[in-house]
């Protein structure tokens, strides 16, 4: 398997706060990788660095063999790096269809997409994400679950090679989560590499082939999802040392 994206010693400081410290990992073509860590661990900052929203203070981001550390967000989009936002970012007064068309028109490496072709691509993606019935509604009128789907459809219309899903399940109920899970699986089957940023262990355990654990800006562990969930360092990161000990004593005692 070949690496699609590779981070070498990436650090990011905001003034005195070191949001990322010397993070290095690779993601292979076609993988589904989970990224977990407690609030404030630097997960979103990591995605921001990978998409050029914020520059890295040190280190390199290599995408498909090219050094893209200094790229701007629109360049990342054209290279085939797409992301969804934790806080959804629609074009509120455009229709659902037009939102997805924006992804098809401007994202992705194919510069030949005209407005009519973009509408066709957008309709396909709406069909795929089961939003077709809402195509002519203004994006601002969708429910949260609908908006998350719209983010997905928009990212998919960009025909990405790497798709980063930032808490795509946050704020959804369990039926909606099941639908979202099925959708992510279908996207992966199309050959898209996926980085999944998640708090919900259910999602990580059922989708991710490998998990990266971020704690206070450092990559503290990576490996098999089940092993990671039971890893002492991971439990400590989430619960703190004292409760981690109690939790593990409880687990062995029972």
């Amino acid at each position: 398997m070949t690496a699609i994206i590779e981070l070498n010693g990436v650090s990011k400081s905001f003034g005195g706060i070191r949001a990322l410290r010397d993070v290095s990992f690779t993601i292979d073509q076609g993988e589904i990788v989970g990224l977990i860590g407690p609030n404030g661990a630097g997960k979103t900052t990591l995605v921001n660095v990978m998409t050029g929203v914020t520059g890295a203070t040190a280190g390199q981001v290599i995408f498909c063999g090219a050094n893209v550390t200094a790229q701007r967000p629109y360049q990342a989009a054209r290279r085939g790096i797409a992301r969804t936002f934790q806080v959804v970012q629609p074009f509120p007064r455009m229709t659902v269809l037009e939102n997805v068309m924006a992804g098809a028109l401007f994202g992705g490496a194919d510069r030949e997409v005209n407005v009519r072709r973009a509408a066709d691509i957008a309709r396909e993606q709406l069909e795929f994400t089961e939003l077709a019935a809402l195509a002519d509604k203004p994006a601002g009128s969708l429910t949260i679950a609908g908006r998350k789907r719209l983010e997905l459809a928009k990212s998919l219309a960009m025909q990405p090679k790497l798709l980063m899903l930032d808490e795509v399940n946050a704020g959804l109920n369990s039926t909606e989560i099941d639908r979202a899970l099925a959708l992510v699986r279908k996207i992966s089957e199309r050959g898209v590499t996926i980085l999944l940023i998640e708090h919900l262990m259910k999602v990580i355990l059922s989708l991710a082939q490998r998990v990266l654990v971020l704690h206070q800006g450092e990559l503290v562990a990576q490996g098999d999802p089940v092993a990671m969930v039971n890893d002492r360092r991971v439990i400590e990161a989430y619960l703190g040392e004292k409760f981690a000990r109690r939790y593990q004593e409880g687990a062995t005692g029972a």
Binding site: R72, Y74, A77, R93, G103, M158
Partner: peptide, 12 residues
């Protein structure tokens, strides 16, 4: 409508 999102979908 949303300049940051526009940047993100690939608009220069």
């Amino acid at each position: 409508q949303n300049e940051d999102a526009a940047d993100m979908v690939g608009i220069d």
